[in-house]
């Protein structure tokens, strides 16, 4: 029974990280950009929640969504000029943006944690037999599932989704066929903003305070998950995000209490092993021979 409990908790954390990972994966797909500043969407959203503490939920949620999507679109503008730059340059650019936003947050709100305080009912729990289930667990799994399904439908059933997949598989050819790349990239950023909003709201019961580093920690873990899963396609990237969240929670529960401080070492060790065994990604099909 204990293990069922661990499993449920792990699935909940996994679905949170899969949302962030899907956002990172979408952007990587359309412009080969690893957005380290993805976490700053969550951070800025978190401070929006802090600033609007006490307002009605029906105002706060749309407002946070607006702020996060707006910031995502601003980021897109900042990265636009670098679309054909070397990967390292783009990575450092996203780092600079992340650093900039964290510095601003640090200056405005200091490094001390601020309470985000939304949906406090979600952290309550009910019991089924010996299982103790928090409402947020169920909601995370449900929202995660719905959003993943939604993005999947969007990519497969709409025109812009089709164009997005075309740009992801070959930008130059897609462009030559008349796909308006800018529109596609903007859509991808907006979509990743929506995903970040959902992830943020579901993270609140787990981590109720926001600090300038709040988002970076989440984004790094999700990014590791994306690479471990396989960056080249969305589904493996999302599963990768899920796995890292799942493993994080599972390893934590399984480690003896005294050894829990070594959680990071175990987790990173697993990451290294997976990367050595399957450098192309855990859920990626074997790649055809490298093109010469």
């Amino acid at each position: 029974m204990r293990y069922v409990q661990y499993f449920i908790d792990a699935v909940a954390l996994g679905s949170l990280y899969s949302l962030v990972a899907l956002g990172i994966g979408l952007i990587f797909g359309v412009m080969r950009l690893i957005n380290l500043a993805q976490g700053e969407l969550l951070m800025v959203g978190g401070y929006t929640l802090f600033a609007t503490n006490g307002w009605s939920v029906f105002v706060r949620v749309p407002l946070v969504l607006l702020v996060i999507v707006g910031l995502a679109l601003l980021m897109e503008r900042a990265f636009r000029r670098l679309r054909s730059a070397a990967p390292a340059t783009m990575l450092v650019m996203t780092f600079a943006v992340s650093f900039l936003l964290r510095s601003i947050a640090q200056k405005r709100w200091s490094a001390q944690g601020k309470s985000m305080n939304i949906f406090s009912g979600l952290s309550h729990a009910f019991t089924v037999g010996q299982l103790r289930i928090r409402y947020v667990t169920l909601v995370s799994i449900a929202v995660g599932g719905v959003l993943l399904l939604g993005v999947n439908l969007f990519l497969n059933r709409t025109d812009i989704g089709l164009q997005m997949r075309a740009v992801a598989s070959d930008r130059r050819i897609a462009q030559a066929l008349g796909v308006r790349t800018n529109r596609v990239v903007v859509t991808a950023f907006a979509l990743s903003g929506v995903l970040a909003t959902a992830a943020l709201l579901l993270f609140v019961p787990q981590r109720p305070t926001v600090t300038p580093d709040f988002g970076l920690q989440i984004a790094i873990v999700a990014l590791i998950g994306v690479v471990v899963g396989g960056m080249d396609r969305l589904a493996p990237a999302t599963f990768g995000g899920f796995s890292i969240g799942f493993a994080n929670s599972m390893v934590f529960s399984l480690l003896p209490t005294g050894q829990r401080v070594f959680l990071d070492s175990v987790l990173y060790g697993l990451v290294i092993i997976v990367l050595l065994l399957r450098p192309q990604g855990l859920f990626q099909r074997e790649r055809q021979t490298t093109r010469v």
């Binding site: 690893i34 790094i220 990014l223 590791i224 690479v227 471990v228 960056m231 401080v261 070594f262 959680l263 990071d264 070492s265 987790l267 990173y268 060790g269 990451v271 290294i272 990367l275 050595l276 450098p279 192309q280």
Partner: peptide, 17 residues
């Protein structure tokens, strides 16, 4: 990227230990 993340994992382990 695999190399980047793997070396990052080394950093994480070093710090944790």
């Amino acid at each position: 990227l695999s190399a980047g993340i793997a070396t990052f994992a080394v950093l994480g382990i070093t710090r944790n230990v």
